[in-house]
Amino acid sequence: MAVREGLLALLQDEPRYGYQLKTEFESATGGVWPLNVGQVYTTLDRLERDGLVGVEHVDDQKRYALTDGGRDALGSWWDAVPADDPPPRDELMLKVLMAIEKGHDHALRVVTHQRTALTALLRDRRRQRATAEGTGGDLAPALVTEALIVRAEADLRWLDQCEARVMSAAAEATTRSSDRTNGGSR
């Protein structure tokens, strides 16, 4: 996960204490990515081991700062593009691909059920966002909700395409089998 890089990014401007990093990480990610303190210190230990952060002791507390190596690593991270290689493997996709193996009718049932549930989920997220906007919410949580909405939309679009493809495959199969029947009766 990108917690490492998140911590480096928070250290970009000035040194920080461990607990401060935990709080700032959670606030920057809109409250959807809670960290426990242990996880933060373990990650910081690894960053120190890899020479990406340096530690100084201030009033008996460890304060962390980026090293030159850390600054380079952070620079590369800002520039790097998340690659879809290996291909995306999510549960929804797996479920639909497996359902197709079980026949067209089963696949359509699974697609329909998933789509209905996802539509209800999208509606709930929409309401959540409307409530957040109504109370003058912060930018980070609003963008997180927007990301969830857009991803749900993408999944729904994909399910629509699955439905269309499965239906046309089913229609072709019916045509083929009736051709065979007609041929056999001749």
Binding site: L108, H113, T116, A120, R123, I149, E153, R157, D160
Partner: peptide, 27 residues
């Protein structure tokens, strides 16, 4: 046909070949 716009509704009904195949109102 846009999930985005549909999500403003209280309820969504899905049709396929003239048949109601699902309804978020049921759940």
């Amino acid at each position: 046909h846009e999930p985005r716009f549909s999500s403003w509704a209280d309820r969504t009904v899905f049709l396929r070949d003239g048949v109601v195949v699902d309804d978020t109102g049921d759940s």
